[in-house]
Design a protein around this nucleic acid. Structure first.
Lengths: 339, 339
DNA sequence: CTGAAAGCGCTTACAG
DNA sequence: CTGAAAGCGCTTACAG
């Protein structure tokens, strides 16, 4: 029967196998450096004892945790849930475990989360977007923590990132919308403060308007947190203006879903009375009635590649490569051509 | 300027403050056991040096990581994304960090994930549902890892859990559906194998049918993984049967969303031609057209309370209390009364 | 209230 | 290919 003492140690295995602890350690970490006869004897002892290495001791001696930290705004946003799921799966397949923290879209608490994950021994960190206090970057550099930025792509930074150009992508959509005859655009944007992705998307619309000879100053813009309810409220407000927009461009699909719901409640037809667009192409987009015109972002792919790249950075000490992903416009029922 | 040597240690702080390492350690871990004058001097040194404790060393000496592991099917299912988000937030507010792993609904890989999280030093574990190999429970008991089960509630187990009775909840919905005049029920269930929640829900429908004098054998049941697309396909198949059901009860909202989408594509009116119900009440449910009748589950609340309870278990060595949460039926547009 | 010192369980040059 | 031993950076009885 099982002895009173709890978990077996390297020493126990070494004694049982009649070798030194060094040999046991080698069997576990670089088996090819031990001759087969010895190795099988050791592995037998490992199994018999049900030995698993002590985490703390291993971390302390090896100075690695095989753990990667991620700080995201929230898992409740499907884009991060998807991306993080893929990130975790890939990490797991490479022998790493995921440590998760979230800011709930409060950038001011990110610094503390970074410290906390580093203190927990994260070998590397995944962060979302660029916008953050320079002190955070400085801390990360000083502690030499490999860090990868995802969901954004800004050429000309030395910080490794994987993502897409939020601004250019939204501009592309705006151009499309305008080319379909829309001149009265209204915008429901996410909160821009401390969120470069939201800011980029908003700027993209303004860029597109300007490109096409529209006056950006004339575009009504409502800024609100990414919640369905907020999308509904903002839509309400926009529809009460003197000149009704012919299209409401939303900062993401969640806001657009709220707008579509509210349109239905107001007995407004989408897209006959008003067109609505989103951004992200989460599953919701194809289930809404009407289906949502939006910008497709490969969230899973981004998560997966982020894991691959970050592990590479952790294991090789190189600064990491940036990667830009393709996005595409998905034209669906919620956008109508006026021409 | 900064010296070449990297991260400061306890020793550095001790020297700088002119005290022993024991005192520095106490300042950090039980400040009240150090007289104020000493403490301020030490904290000054800590700040000057930018000292943060080495994780591995601390874990090894204290035998605790302040880390909690969770193994869920997938973050892509909104119920787990929500619950896990709340779980993480609560954990964070209590000084713990979340380690995440997922099975992608493949129960056979859970054992390895459990081992991996334990090997990473998880102080406690959150698992979803009861159904799993007895060896896993045995391992957890042997290693004395506090474990809490969520999203399920089974009276009469000694395993701590927090959740609701999936079977009774679905039975309640089935009773409601039948009381509204439906006799031709069809079911789109999640995969039952290795998933006690899915199985409970399916059984609940059968219970409800039997209670009301319907023959459960006559109910067509399609079992399929929780994906929108699968809900659509299953709905298709069900609608091609000789006797069309008047209601399709789905194992969760995701499957129901697929069914509703397919109904639209088939030009079938929901609920005039066929009623559809879901389970979970994710945000989607109120955005679908028509809105979805479903069982409301307090996912956030469950996640939050799970964190509170699990931390209690970790810190007190008690076996943990089970908690049953209230669910409720949400009657919405997708279910029509036939009487 | 504070210090000297053992000990936590590994990994890894360094020898042989 | 294998072993003896130092060392990783903390925490915590045990004294005083």
């Amino acid at each position: 029967m099982s002895r009173i003492r709890s978990v077996p140690t390297l020493d126990d295995v070494a004694k049982k196998a009649g070798v030194s602890t060094a040999t046991v350690s080698r069997c576990l970490n670089s088996p090819d450096r031990v001759v087969e006869r010895t190795r099988t004897r050791v592995m037998r002892a490992v199994n018999d004892l049900g030995y698993t290495p002590n985490f703390g001791a291993r971390v302390m001696a090896a100075k690695r945790t095989f753990t990667i930290g991620a700080i995201i705004p929230t898992m409740e946003n499907a884009i991060f849930a998807r991306g993080l799921q893929a990130f975790q799966e890939q990490l797991h397949s490479q022998g790493y475990t995921l440590l998760v923290s979230s800011t709930s879209y409060r950038p001011e608490i990110e610094a503390e989360q970074v410290r906390s994950l580093v203190a927990r021994g994260a070998d590397g960190l995944l962060l979302i977007g660029y916008a953050r206090d320079a002190k955070i970057y400085q801390y990360l550099r000083q502690r030499e923590i490999p860090t990868l930025i995802a969901w954004a792509f800004q050429p000309g930074t030395d910080q490794a990132c994987i993502g897409f150009d939020n601004r250019a992508s939204m501009q592309m959509l705006a151009n499309k919308v305008i080319s379909m005859g829309h001149r009265d655009i209204a915008v429901i944007s996410g909160v821009v403060e401390g969120n470069d992705r939201a800011e980029g998307r908003l700027q993209g619309i303004i860029d597109g308007a300007r490109d096409n000879g529209l006056d950006p100053e004339q575009i009504p813009i409502i800024e609100t947190p990414y919640e369905i309810e907020n999308g509904a409220k903002a839509f309400d407000t926009l529809m009460q203006r003197e000149t009704r927009p012919t299209v409401v461009m939303c900062g993401n699909d969640v806001l657009a879903a709220g707008a579509i719901r509210r349109a239905r409640e107001l007995n407004l037809s989408v897209p006959d009375d008003v067109s609505i667009t989103g951004f992200d192409d989460i599953e919701l987009a194809r289930i809404l009635t009407p289906t949502l015109t939006t910008v497709h972002v490969p969230h899973r792919e981004m998560g997966r590649r982020a894991a691959v790249e970050l592990v590479k950075m952790v294991e090789s000490d190189n600064p990491g490569l940036s990667e830009q992903l393709e996005i595409s416009i998905k034209l669906r029922g919620s956008l109508k051509s006026l021409s």
